[in-house]
Every structure is written in structure tokens, then in C-alpha cells.
Amino acid sequence: MLVFIIPLKSPQFSNSWERVTQLFERCIKSVCNQTSANFRVIVVCHEKPKIEFNHSHITYITVDFSPANETNPVAKGDTDKGRKILKGLIYARQFCPTHTMAVDADDCVSKKLAKFIQQHPDSDGWFINKGYKYQEGSKYIYIKRNNFYKMCGTCNITRYDLNYLPEAPEYNRGYGYYRYYIDHGKVRDILKNKAKAIKSLPFPGAVYILETGENLFDNSKRLRFSIFNRKLLNQSIRDEFGLYKLQQFS
């Protein structure tokens, strides 16, 4: 079984909680659109978002973590994210997952993931080398042919034991304590050094949503692609990733 972990930022640290909620609702619909029912979703949040979508495979965990004691706002946000991912991974144990995947709350994922993992229960895992990048409202989508996992946090699927969970997890530590769960681009090499090499997922696994107004990093430069990597956002891609256009609001 594949368990998705979605860390959701708090209203306190959102530029627009309404926007965060919209993005999250699309994300959770995408995650739950799997072609196999052999999955669960754990959302870790300070406040449960008010959305209309419900699914029996979703579990919400609310936390009251204090803001991270970091001077850099990006490190502060990353630490909060790391705490929530760790919390979700610990909770996931009760579902006896074969694999877990952290998903950023504004991204979309392929509906083929759960079925693929179900067919390979003993694998060490996969990293998404090829995926898509999308700017909200565009009629185009961009293919990222290599190194998708280095830029997008929705990228690693690991066998549950390879999360290397601490026996007594702590949720009041600094950035370094949660680094393994945050530095998504380094997981592949870390596991390779432990002789647990994860493989490249054999199909595009996720859509990285850019310039939402809620990204931790200014990622507008990551839309500067060659025109040869651009294609029309067709219905097939929309259906596979649950990528629909969000309503506008002021």
C-alpha cells in the first residue's frame, strides 16, 4: 500500500488562506483519483481546511507546533514542513504501508501511482526524474525531462523502512533534525550511499505548480523552458493528474 503524506501550511504563514485551500483541494482530489484503491492519504495541518471534497481514505491530523526558531523565513517554513512530514510518517505505520510519498499541498500527481506501487511491493522505491511544470491559468504545460526530483518536493516514493524514522520522534527541533524529509533532491544519493538505490519512475509522476503566490521559493525562473518542452494542456493530462483550472478571486 502507498500512503501519501501532505504537509499543509498554517493560515498564519499563508499569504492567502483562501488560495492555499483552493490549491490543496485540487491536490487532494488529484491524489485520491488513483486507479487502485490500495492507498491512504494523511494530511498534517494546523487547521483543517474547509473544502467540499471528502474521501474515506483521507485522514487529517491537526497539530499545534510552535513556529520554528529560525531566522530565515524559508528555513522556518521548511522546518514546519519537515515536522509535519515526520508526524505523518509516524502515523502511517498503522496502515502497514509498503511505501510512502510526501506531496506538496499545491502539486498534482499521476493517478497511476498506487497501482504501480501495488505491483512492486518489495522495491526500495523511485524518484521522479521526468515530470511536468505548470503555471496557473496557462493553456500550456512544460515537460521536465530530467532531474524533476531536484526542483519539486513531490518526487520521492520510498519503501517505508527507508524513511529511517527515529524511535522517539521530536517535533520541537531545528531544521537539521528534519533534513532527510525536507531535502528531497538529496534522498536519491543518500539511499544510494546506503546501498538502497531507488529507481527512476518509468513515467511522469507529478505536476509541479509554479507561481502560486504560496511557494517557499521564487520559482518564476523555472518556467523559462525551450519551446520544444512546451505542449498544450490537453484533456488526457488533465485527467491523469486532476489538473483543472482554479477559480479566480481577489
Rank of each mutant, 00 (worst) to 15 (best):
L2N: 03
F4M: 07
I5G: 02
P7N: 05
K9H: 08
S10C: 06
S10I: 02
Q12P: 00
Q12C: 03
E18I: 12
E18Y: 01
T21R: 04
T21F: 03
Q22N: 08
Q22F: 03
R26A: 13
R26Q: 14
C27D: 05
K29E: 14
V31S: 08
C32G: 07
C32K: 02
C32R: 03
T35P: 00
T35V: 14
A37I: 09
A37V: 09
N38S: 13
F39P: 07
R40I: 06
V41P: 10
C45N: 05
P49W: 07
P49R: 07
K50M: 13
I51E: 13
F53T: 10
N54W: 07
N54G: 08
T59I: 08
Y60C: 12
I61P: 06
D64F: 00
F65C: 09
F65S: 09
F65K: 03
P67D: 09
N72S: 14
P73T: 11
P73V: 11
A75D: 14
K76N: 11
G77V: 04
T79N: 04
K81D: 01
G82P: 01
G82C: 02
K84Q: 12
K84G: 00
I85F: 00
L86A: 05
L89K: 03
I90E: 10
A92F: 05
R93A: 15
R93N: 14
C96V: 10
P97D: 10
P97K: 04
T98C: 07
M101T: 04
V103T: 06
D104E: 10
D104G: 04
S110F: 09
K111L: 14
L113R: 01
K115T: 13
F116Y: 15
Q119S: 15
P121W: 07
P121F: 06
W126P: 05
N129R: 08
Y132W: 13
Y134W: 08
G137S: 07
S138I: 06
Y140T: 11
Y140F: 13
I141A: 12
Y142P: 00
I143N: 08
K144F: 01
Y149Q: 02
Y149P: 03
M151L: 10
M151C: 09
G153T: 06
T154M: 06
C155A: 15
R159M: 08
Y160G: 05
N163P: 01
Y164F: 15
L165Q: 03
E167W: 00
E167L: 11
A168M: 03
N172Y: 02
N172A: 07
R173S: 08
Y175M: 10
Y175C: 06
G176N: 12
Y177I: 06
Y178A: 05
Y181D: 01
Y181I: 03
V187M: 12
R188E: 15
I190W: 08
L191D: 04
K192Y: 11
N193T: 11
K194H: 13
K194M: 13
K196D: 04
A197Y: 02
A197F: 03
L201N: 00
P202R: 08
I209N: 06
L210H: 12
E214K: 05
S220H: 10
K221Q: 11
F228C: 04
N229D: 15
R230D: 05
K231A: 08
N234A: 06
Q235S: 14
R238K: 15
R238Q: 15
R238A: 14
D239N: 14
F241I: 11
G242I: 10
Y244L: 12
K245Y: 10
K245P: 01
L246H: 09
F249G: 13
F249Y: 08
S250R: 09
